[in-house]
C-alpha cells in the first residue's frame, strides 16, 4: 500500500473560529438554515438553496461519498521524497461538497462514489483539520 501525506497546518481566523472550535471537539459543523433546514457548507453566510441569512451551526454526520481526487506526486530527484498527497472532493451525505484530502487509503483503490468518513488530524502548530478516509469494510458502489 502506498503511504499518502497528511494535511499541512492551518490557523483559525475570525470567520472560521467556530468551525475550528468544532473540529477541536471532533465535530464537523455545517451551517443549516433555520426556515427550511437546508444544509450548507461551513463558510456559508446565506443558504445556497433559499437565500436565508438565518443559519446556525449543526454537526454533520461526518460521512459522504468521494466525488473526485488527484494524486500529487513529489518532484523527482529528492533524496527522501515525501509521500504523495491526495486532494479530493467529497459530497457530504447532507448534500454540500467539501474540498479536502484523502488519507489512509491507497490511491489506486479510490473510485468515485466510494463511501468515506471524516477523521481529524492535528499537524504540529495547527487547528484540527478534517480529512477523509474510506469507510472500513465498504466496497465502492
Amino acid at each position: 500500500m502506498t503511504a499518502v501525506a497528511g494535511p499541512g497546518p492551518v490557523a483559525r481566523n475570525e470567520d472560521s473560529a467556530a468551525f475550528f472550535d468544532g473540529t477541536a471537539a471532533g465535530r464537523f459543523l455545517l451551517r443549516r438554515c433555520r426556515p427550511a433546514g437546508h444544509w450548507n457548507r461551513p463558510q456559508a453566510v446565506r443558504c445556497a438553496q433559499c437565500d436565508s441569512p438565518d443559519l446556525r451551526p449543526e454537526p454533520a454526520a461526518g460521512t459522504g461519498r468521494l466525488v473526485s481526487w488527484v494524486v500529487v506526486h513529489p518532484r523527482p530527484g529528492a533524496d527522501d521524497p515525501p509521500p504523495p498527497a491526495v486532494p479530493a472532493i467529497v459530497e457530504l451525505d447532507e448534500g454540500p461538497w467539501w474540498w479536502t484530502m484523502m488519507v489512509g487509503a491507497d490511491p489506486a483503490g479510490l473510485r468515485a462514489g466510494l463511501p468515506v468518513q471524516v477523521v481529524f488530524e492535528r499537524p504540529e502548530g495547527s487547528e484540527a483539520v478534517p480529512v477523509w478516509t474510506p469507510v472500513r469494510g465498504q466496497p465502492p458502489t
Binding site: P7, N13, S16, T100, M101, V129
Partner: peptide
C-alpha cells in the same frame, strides 16, 4: 512558518491549490 488561515488555509492544508490540482 505561520500557517495559512481560515477557509483558504484549509484548502491549502489539504493541497487543493493551483490550477494543476
Amino acid at each position: 512558518a505561520s500557517p495559512p488561515a481560515g477557509w483558504g488555509g484549509l484548502l491549502a492544508a489539504a493541497g487543493v491549490r493551483g490550477p494543476n490540482t
